[in-house]
């Protein structure tokens, strides 16, 4: 069954079609949430809220854009809300209290993944910390555009559609984000 048929079946109430639709995109949605929010809990919240909204509003999907664009619009709006709230509240949701004091939850994820080479591990940690820093300095829109272009491979035209802006504006965001990354990562080049 192609995607349009799947959507129509889900619109008509076919639960298994809805589930197949979810499974087509949910890994990418979770990765996007995880990379943007850098917290498994927040990524999970975005995942659940996004697909619940899709479920509730699928009737209103009129095929005037691709399903992926429609879904990503929902996901990016949820992520933008989170990022803006954090900016206002300076919420440090990725920090947790441990015996050694406050630690970033993502550190443990990265450490579990790092291989046994101590030098490589130190390098990975420094690199991660620098990238975290520069990402936190990007505006929410710059982050979204960078994530969607670099990690998800979406074209700027599609990103513009998702964000409700022009391709040119998305291009400018990507340019600014890349320049900031270039400056911040200069020592690692």
């Amino acid at each position: 069954m192609d995607e349009a048929a799947l959507i129509r079946a889900a619109q008509a109430g076919d639960q298994s079609a809805f589930e197949r639709l979810v499974r087509t995109y949910d890994h990418a949605v979770l990765r996007l949430g995880m990379n943007l929010l850098r917290s498994p809990e927040d990524a999970r919240d975005v995942y659940q809220e996004a697909f619940l909204r899709v479920y509730r509003n699928l009737d209103h999907f009129r095929f005037d854009c691709s399903f992926q664009t429609w879904l990503y619009r929902i996901v990016t709006n949820l992520c933008l809300d989170q990022l803006r709230k954090r900016k206002i509240r300076r919420e440090e949701s990725s920090l947790r209290q441990t015996a050694d004091g406050l630690r970033d939850r993502m550190d443990s994820v990265a450490e579990e993944r790092a291989d046994g080479d101590p030098e490589r591990r130190i390098y990975s940690r420094q690199l991660k910390s620098r990238i975290d820093q520069v990402l936190s300095e990007l505006t929410p829109r710059e982050r979204l555009v960078f994530e969607m272009r670099h990690y998800q491979g979406l074209r700027l035209r599609a990103i513009g559609e998702v964000l409700g802006t022009t391709e040119e504006a998305a291009k400018n965001c990507l340019f600014r984000a890349t320049q900031k990354m270039r400056r911040a990562l200069g020592d690692f080049l």
């Binding site: 979770l30 995880m34 498994p40 990524a43 659940q48 993502m106 990562l185 080049l189």
Partner: peptide, 20 residues
Amino acid sequence: VHRLADQAEMDPPAGLLESC
């Protein structure tokens, strides 16, 4: 810079997708 950014890509921890 692109290669470094590739290395910093985060994947969801094991089991997160299934639990979601």
